[in-house]
């Protein structure tokens, strides 16, 4: 299926340099990468290999030093800040290693936040947020603040926030990095279900082979270059039955 779909994301000769002059550090040295709609891609590699950098560039959180980034055929490097923000708002969802939820804010309000910026009505926001929280298995935890939730639950809230806008792509930067193995597998199965049932393209950075095994495609980064790019089919079967079909 993935071979037939049109390219959703296309990176051409992307480089990223941090700092200037003597202190300059080249994090990406010319990346070419094509991701099609509906894929579940794990990005792996040692520290400093540029895997998080490429994730931030894909998410328009950061800008490349050179090269071209096409998102559904649109040259992202030509967009201004506001246009990139609108692209994030309408097409991208983020999950971070550190969760990045608003403190002292209920799960429901955290999930509603992206909808607020989209200008949706209060009823639409409430309904969508509750549905998203239900989807990640946090039924009944709507009024809890991050401090009252476990790490796994917080990451679920973050995932709910990412999918509440029904994005095309879900970008997850070490989503299980702060979680124990049991919670990590639960989160991975959730991501897998979202990819399988809702057709959301999932891009995930991880350094744990266990977690990467959930993906159908694994891209290895070494020293700012793509080292290997392998497809493997059957892995999505792992514990697929564990997660109730949602949404």
């Amino acid at each position: 299926m993935s071979e037939a779909s049109p390219p959703l994301i296309e990176l051409r000769a992307i480089t990223k340099t941090y700092g200037e002059g003597q202190a300059a550090f080249q994090a990406l040295c010319g990346i070419d990468l094509v991701i099609r709609a509906g894929e579940f891609v794990a990005v792996m590699g040692p520290s400093g290999s540029g895997k998080s950098t490429v994730m931030n560039l894909l998410g328009c959180l950061d800008t490349p030093t050179s090269g071209h980034y096409l998102f559904r055929g649109i040259a992202v490097e030509t967009l201004d800040r506001n246009q990139r923000a609108l692209l994030r708002r309408h097409s991208l969802g983020f999950v971070f290693q550190g969760f990045n939820l608003l403190a002292r804010t209920t799960a429901q309000e955290n999930v509603e936040l992206p909808l607020l910026y989209r200008g949706e009505t209060a009823e639409a926001r409430h309904a969508a947020a509750r549905a998203a929280l239900k989807c990640v298995g946090l039924d009944g935890w709507e009024q809890h603040t991050p401090a009252e939730l476990s790490g796994g639950q917080q990451q679920r809230v973050a995932i709910a926030r990412a999918i509440v806008t029904q994005p095309l792509v879900l970008l997850a930067d070490e989503p299980t990095g702060n979680l124990d193995s049991k919670r990590s597998h639960e989160i991975m199965e959730l991501l897998l279900a979202l990819n399988r049932d809702q057709g959301i393209t999932v891009l995930m950075v991880t350094h744990e082979p266990d977690m990467a095994a959930y993906a159908r495609r694994i891209v290895h980064f070494v020293d700012g270059l793509v080292d290997s790019d392998t497809q493997h089919a059957g892995s999505s079967a792992v514990g697929a039955q564990a997660e109730a079909p949602c949404c």
Binding site: G59, L61, R81, N82, A85, L86, R88, R89, H90, L92, F94, N100, L101, L102, A103, L113, P114, Y117, R118, R161, T165
Partner: peptide, 17 residues
């Protein structure tokens, strides 16, 4: 704290203004 909060808001698609 607020800078991080602003980062979160920008990441989920809030415009600068």
């Amino acid at each position: 704290e607020r800078t991080r909060e602003i980062g979160i808001r920008l990441a989920i698609g809030a415009l600068e203004h």
